[in-house]
């Protein structure tokens, strides 16, 4: 595929990865990217509903928010923030490697990204199991007072918000891990190079959005003041 047209001149030759309904790779990539951005728009709107719920509850019950958030592990949240930021960096480097046809670097960076995502989920697992163990659960499942924790106000609502927001985010991380694995397999087959890397780029966009959401979740849930 490296013999296909890159420069000017060979207008009649179609690269094998160019779908027939597109005239050029640029057009195909532009369409794919626009589609991805529209998808990301729906993602942002979906999460915005949860963020708004958070702000409303915080507006009504500031003291409850303040006391309940003390039971989240700040260190775990901070560690996860750093891990996700690094994974975003490695993902950006993976896209850059694809842009420069550097397949070994692409594969390496995808693996780093996967590793970071894995660390994130393991930390989340420990956080969740601690919460479940202490009965700090959403809504009517809340039973931390049986475990000797007296929280003021309506902590079961705080934990509902906590589990819904981080849970939905966690699902996105898991989905992202799946997609990155798929991209890694395709990269191993040699699918990606400077003329065809939109799949890598769109995966990167999705992954950065997951990072973006965590950038807001972390201070709102873990660092209430």
């Amino acid at each position: 595929m490296s013999t296909t047209s890159h420069g000017s001149g060979q207008h009649e030759e179609y690269p094998p990865y160019l779908a027939h309904h597109f005239d050029t790779m640029g057009q195909q990539a532009g369409a794919a990217k626009l589609g991805m951005w529209l998808f990301l728009a729906t993602e942002i709107l979906m999460f915005s509903g949860l963020f708004l719920a958070y702000f409303i509850i915080r507006y009504f019950y500031p003291d409850m928010m303040l006391s309940a958030h003390e039971f989240l592990q700040k260190e775990a949240g901070a560690l996860n923030t750093v891990v996700l930021l690094i994974s975003s960096y490695t993902m950006a480097m993976a896209v850059r490697a694809a842009q420069t046809s550097n397949t070994p670097s692409l594969k390496r960076n995808l693996l780093w990204t996967l590793l970071c995502a894995g660390i994130f989920m393991v930390v989340k697992y420990f956080e969740y199991s601690a919460k479940i163990e202490h009965g700090m659960l959403p809504g009517r499942f809340y039973e931390a007072h049986y475990h000797g924790y007296e929280l003021v106000g309506l902590p079961h609502i705080f934990f509902a918000v906590y589990f819904t927001m981080t849970g939905l985010h966690g699902v996105h991380v898991l989905v992202g891990m799946g997609i990155i694995t798929w991209i890694y397999i395709r990269a191993s087959r040699g699918d990606f190079h400077s003329g065809n890397y939109i799949a890598v780029e769109n995966t990167g966009l999705y992954w950065h959005l997951v990072d973006l959401i965590w950038i807001f979740l972390f201070p709102l849930l873990y660092l209430v003041r």
């Binding site: 047209s5 890159h6 420069g7 000017s8 060979q10 207008h11 005239d23 050029t24 790779m25 640029g26 057009q27 990539a29 850059r96 842009q99 420069t100 400077s194 003329g195």
Partner: peptide, 13 residues
């Protein structure tokens, strides 16, 4: 309108 349609433009930072 694209002048060189088969030139796949991208910016590598």
């Amino acid at each position: 309108e694209i002048e060189n349609p088969h030139e796949f433009h991208h910016h590598v930072a």
